[in-house]
Nucleic acid binder design. Structure first.
Lengths: 185, 185
DNA sequence: AACGGACGAGACGGTGCCGTCTCGACGCCA
DNA sequence: TGGCGTCGAGACGGCACCGTCTCGTCCGTT
């Protein structure tokens, strides 16, 4: 019925508009213009602006973390950080994510969506890295896995997004060292 | 000339509006109504909405980190994390900060302001904790101080703000342990 | 008592946007 | 060939807001 390529163009336009102007300043007119599409095409697909943004973000966030299982804690952490970096530094997502967090603090529905669709799945996957390391005896059985996850994501996010400073050569290796050292008591 | 208590009421209203609705959705009408003030009082003080927001944020962010100097790395880190927590978990600032970060990624002027007025001074103060620890020989001389700073702030920010999960009893002690362990090679 | 400046309230023109609607064009299926 | 549904474009009424402006009031100074 509805043309898939029109839907695709709209989705792209929404993401680009979010990246350029943020959640609070996204307008349907700008989206339709950017997509080269009539406003009717938007309202034929979603009932309102909020519904449209929700649907697009949900679809865009399907990219997931991967569980490496390299056989060693260091190897797993390095690979996990690599995937995390690719996610956080993604040229479009990195510009949308802070706005999403800000929006989530004012809009409980967005907060729940972020937790359910993004945070939860990613953490579940990454947790396996540390449970395997415990089984291998590389780190203590009472290791605080939740804090270990916060550590990896937090260090990288704080530098790249909050401070806005790009990674330099060997950065992820240094973060890997730091995390491994913190966990090996 | 201008009534200080009117200025104060406006400043408070701007902060509350930012916390409730974010940067993109702040309106002068809402601010004037919230402050119980005419719109003319706003434009008598600032030339535009952007100028007003900039001035208010700048003034609000004067709260600074403190340099503890307890004599030990652990004590200094613990005290620094305490101050950091008070800042990040501040009931109003915690709701404004994510919006500020999002805004900074779209508005270079806001990015520079955030770096100059907030990030720079805080980091300069906290850096002293680690230079003292190096002088005392508690940690290696080639310790990556910048990453140590990112670690403390990142872990706490990721949990409290990005994930939106409050700290539980003993949380800061656990973070302190983790940071100390990571730095002592 | 008289003056002046800041005050609250809100009217005003102008702009940007939402969501609805109409229009003619195009493509597909019978 | 005719009919139907989506298409791009954009007009439309309504609303929220910006920044300016005009009131009449209040308060401190002289």
């Amino acid at each position: 019925m509805l043309q898939p390529d029109v839907t695709y163009a709209i989705t792209e336009a929404v993401i680009d508009e979010l990246a350029d102007h943020g959640f609070g300043r996204l307008s349907m007119e700008a989206v339709s213009k950017r997509a080269g599409v009539g406003k009717s095409a938007l309202y034929r697909r979603w009932r309102s602006k909020d519904e449209m943004i929700g649907a697009v973000i949900a679809e865009f966030s399907l990219a997931r973390a991967v569980d490496p299982d390299t056989g060693s804690l260091r190897g797993d952490i390095r690979a996990t950080l690599e995937a995390l970096y690719g996610w956080i530094a993604h040229p479009r997502f990195s510009r949308i994510f802070p706005g999403l967090i800000a929006e989530a603090r004012q809009n409980p529905a967005m907060a729940e969506f972020a937790r359910e669709a993004i945070g939860g799945p990613r953490r579940a996957i990454n947790r396996a890295v540390f449970t395997r390391a415990i089984e291998r005896g590389e780190i203590p059985a009472d290791t605080d896995i939740e804090m270990a996850l916060d550590m990896g994501a937090g260090i990288v996010y704080w530098r790249l997004i909050v401070r806005g400073i790009p990674a330099e050569e060997g950065y992820l290796d240094q973060v890997t060292d730091l995390v491994v050292r913190a966990l090996r008591a």
